[in-house]
Design a binder for these strands. Sequence first.
DNA 1: CACCAGGCCCTAT
DNA 2: ATAGGGCATGGT
Length: 204
Amino acid sequence: MDIYLLYKNLKKKYGKPKGQWALWCKRPKTKEEIEQVIIESVLTQRANWKNVCYAVSNLKNNGLLSLEKIVSIKEDELKELIRPSGFYKVKAKRLKELCNFVVNECGGVESAKKISLEIIRKNLLSLNGIGEETADDILLYAFEKPVFVIDEYTRRLVKRYNLTDKLSYKHLQEFFEKSLGKKDYALYQDFHALIVIDGKEENR
DNA sequence: CACCAGGCCCTAT
DNA sequence: ATAGGGCATGGT
């Protein structure tokens, strides 16, 4: 099975990624858009996307959809705003830690983009509540690093087509990156989005 | 009413 | 190393 052909077929079937994916796959993104993607990467953990939208709207309506603002507001205020996204207590804590890291340790999103992949990935993973998938979401969709994101839908796809037997995150990530041959962040962004879009479609 | 959603951490084997 | 429980909301 040619993985790139799989991508072409999904692309043919769905075209440009829609909905949330339109923003996540937008190239290039403004600073505000990058920050929104980072915030959404935490809010979307094990959450229905509609619920994420409610939380994002709350932040936006209060002028707080920004990393600096999230660093400065009270955690209790943040909790109430992001409540619809579920697991709101832990997510408020995680968000504040993540935003603080990007703003104060990295010097903001533009400087963060310039940090080497290995270093920034390791640092993101050291934060509480940022696992491999969330870290790679941020690296790929916010910082435009060529890392292939593995999630539940990707695993289902691998199983459905029997692409490979080992299902660990690291193995699957290497499998996709090697199979696609080139480290192309734009391709990785669209492909992962299409895998999720297609996975949801299969589910109905 | 029951079950689910793009995760992650902690604890116990 | 790996399985299972907890975290919580709104949709279907």
